[in-house]
Amino acid sequence: MSAMLEVEDLHAYYGKSHILQGVTFSVGEGEIVSLLGRNGVGRSTAIKAIMGDVPPRGSVKFRGRQIAGMKPHQIARLGLGYVPENREIFPSLTVRQNLFLGQKSTRESGRWKMADMFGIFPRLEERADTPAGVLSGGEQQMLTMCRTLMGDPDLIMVDEPTEGLAPMMVELVGKLLEEIAGRGVSILLVEQKLAIALKISRRLYVMGHGRVVFEGKPADLSADSPVRKEWLEV
């Protein structure tokens, strides 16, 4: 299987602090891969560096093409989608306008249409003309994911989609992730909750102190309790 996204020896800094200290991982075509680890180990920074939002040092290849150093909008246009942790919906715009801005151009439509989103989350259709700022946390999370999908990414990077959500919402997010994978889109999932990651991922990476400290299949991680104890469990 050819790797779609190959990250090699990636470093990133916030001011003077060295957040990523040589991270290497990859995501294959149509694969769901999780990036696990406690808060502050650099998972979010890793995907921001891939998107060019934080200046990356090292090599980031997407479909064999070097993207480190490109501008965020150029990277997005190549087919990389990003769903931020803090949701970053556009609060004064309506739900429909938020989704509309997810599209990169109005000419071509990709795998996803607004009707698909409303089909998966009828709640978004009910609130289509409401300012997104008044939505509940769970609804905003759905909206953020759907907004990025409207841009038809081939690989979507989702940062902590279940954080702070009620169990029912967590289940919905899980379902959407499976639906996304079902349409042939690769997923890089950043998570803290082990359960959902173990359930849907094909491979997992565990990060600690700005490095990758474990790589393997869900079954390997389930079996490896020292790694879980040292790097994941609180």
Binding site: M51, D53, F90, L93, L101, K104
Partner: peptide
Amino acid sequence: RVGLIIQAALTHPSMVAMLGHDV
């Protein structure tokens, strides 16, 4: 559409860029 992009970029410029708009 340009107006919407401007409105969104008023508060979240980097998110707008990461959706593929040339901010």
